[in-house]
Write a protein that binds this DNA or RNA. Structure first.
Lengths: 223, 223
DNA sequence: TCCAAAATATGAGATATCTCATATTATTGT
DNA sequence: ACAATAATATGAGATATCTCATATTTTGGA
C-alpha cells in the first residue's frame, strides 16, 4: 500500500473531485491510497479506519464461512464506496476487501470526518442511494440464485465480463462468485462449447452464438 | 385498506411517535393506513405514492420471475421502512408488498415530503443505517443459500419463527422464502422428524431437540 | 352448507450440483 | 532456471434438489 503525498496527491484531488458529494470541504481530509493487485485492503473481521471511495481499479468482497467455504459477495468498481457499513454501524462483521487490479482510492479518515459526514445531508443522500442500489442488486442476485440453474447465471456473467467476444475470467473466481463447485462450472462451460455457444481457444473462450447466451441471460431479467 | 382519521389517527400519532427520526415536524404530513391480512399494499411493478413506516404487523416482499417462479425476498416487520427505494431512485422495478397480518403503517406522501426528506440529515442517517443493515442481511442470505444445503437454512428458519417450541409456518410460504421446492421441504422436515429433532403434531411441529437444530443453524453464523 | 381453491402429503424418476481423486499445465518467487 | 504453488482439466460416484403425478385434507366464500 502506498499513500500519495504532495503533488501526486494534489493531482488526483483535482482530476477526480468528489467535492460535489459533500456539502462541506472534504478535500483537506482526503488521503489518496494505492493498493497493488491481490493486496488486502481490509482484512476480514477487522474494522477499517477509513471510508473509501474508488477512483480507479476493481476489488472483490469476500466472506469466509464456518465450513471453510469462501464466497465472493460482489465486485467493487470505480465510484463505489466501501467501509460505509463500519461508518454507520458500531457493530458489524467486516468483510474482506481485496484489490483485483491496481487500485486507487480516496480514503476518508473516520476519526476526523465521521461526525461531519453523519451530519451532511448531501453525502447521506448519496450514500443512501448507493446502499439502496446495492441492496436491490443483492436481493436480485439472491432470488436469481435460488430460481435459476447455473446455466442462466453463467450466461449472464459471461456477457457482463466478456471483452470483445472473448471470455477469460479465472474459473476459481467465478466459482466463488456464482457459488458453485469448480467441477460443475467446467461441466456447464463444456456444455456451452458442445452446443456451439462458446468455442475454446487455448485458455480463453470465444463467444460464437451471442443470441443463445442472451436468451439464457434474459430470463434472469426483471428487477 | 382503511385510512384512519381524526381521533383514531391522533391516537397513533401520539402512541408511536416517529418525530425523532426527522428534524422537521413530520406529524402533520403523516397518514395512518390499515391493511388487512393478504392485502397487497404495493403491487409489483407499480410505483407507490408514499414512504411507509411499519407500526404494527408484518408483510412480505415478493418478486415474480420470468419463468413464473415467485420469490419471497424478505419479511417486513415493525419499525421497518418500505417504499424507500422509490423515494431514492427515479427508476426502480417495484417489488410487491403483501400484508401477512393486519398491518398499520405511517404513510408519508412523496408529493408533499420528498424534498424535505431528501434534505434532512437526521432522516437520511436513519435511512442509510436501515439500508446498510438490509443490504448486509441480503448479502448474508445470498452467500448462505449458495454455501449450505436446506438442512442448515431450514433449521435456522425454524428457530427464528418457532413460538414456544411450536413451529407452524405455512410450507408454501417457506418454499418461496428459502427458494426450494415444496417436495424437498417436506423431505427435509421428514428427516428432522426421523432424527427426532422435531415431532409432528397434527399440522404443527414441536421442537424436541433444540440443541441439534441450533447446531445446524450455527454453521450459518458469521456476519 | 357446500363447493372450489388452497394447503398438505407422498411416490417415482430426472437432473443439477457436489465431493474426491488424480493429471497436466501455468505462474511466481528465489 | 527450478521448485513450489496455483490454475486447469477430467472421471466416477454420491447427494441435494426438482418435476410431475396424484390423493387427501383444510379453508374461505357464495
Amino acid at each position: 500500500m502506498e499513500i500519495y503525498r504532495t503533488e501526486k496527491r494534489q493531482r488526483y484531488l483535482e482530476e477526480y473531485s468528489i467535492g460535489n458529494l459533500f456539502s462541506f470541504p472534504i478535500e483537506e481530509f482526503l488521503e489518496v491510497h494505492e493498493y497493488k493487485r491481490d493486496e488486502w485492503i481490509i482484512q476480514e473481521g477487522m474494522r477499517p479506519d477509513f471510508l473509501f471511495y474508488v477512483i480507479e481499479g476493481k476489488a472483490k468482497i469476500y466472506v469466509t464461512h464456518q465450513n471453510g467455504k469462501v464466497s465472493l459477495i460482489n465486485f467493487i468498481k470505480e465510484e463505489d464506496f466501501f467501509g460505509e457499513m463500519e461508518l454507520l454501524n458500531p457493530i458489524y462483521y467486516t468483510k474482506g476487501i481485496q484489490a483485483s487490479t491496481t487500485m486507487i482510492c480516496f480514503a476518508i479518515p473516520f476519526h476526523r470526518c465521521r461526525a461531519k459526514m453523519l451530519e451532511d445531508a448531501a453525502f447521506l443522500r448519496e450514500l443512501a442511494k448507493f446502499l439502496s442500489v446495492k441492496s436491490t442488486q443483492m436481493a436480485a442476485k439472491y432470488t436469481q440464485s435460488l430460481s435459476f440453474p447455473l446455466e442462466n447465471r453463467l450466461a449472464d456473467f459471461i456477457l457482463q465480463t466478456a471483452d470483445a467476444e472473448i471470455y477469460k475470467e479465472k474459473h476459481v473466481t467465478v466459482c466463488d462468485f456464482l457459488g458453485v463447485s469448480y467441477r460443475h462450472l467446467l461441466y456447464v462451460l463444456a456444455q456451452f462449447c458442445e452446443k456451439g455457444y462458446l468455442k475454446k481457444e487455448g485458455r480463453h473462450y470465444r463467444i460464437q452464438q451471442l443470441n443463445e447466451l442472451e436468451g439464457l441471460a434474459r430470463v434472469l431479467l426483471n428487477e
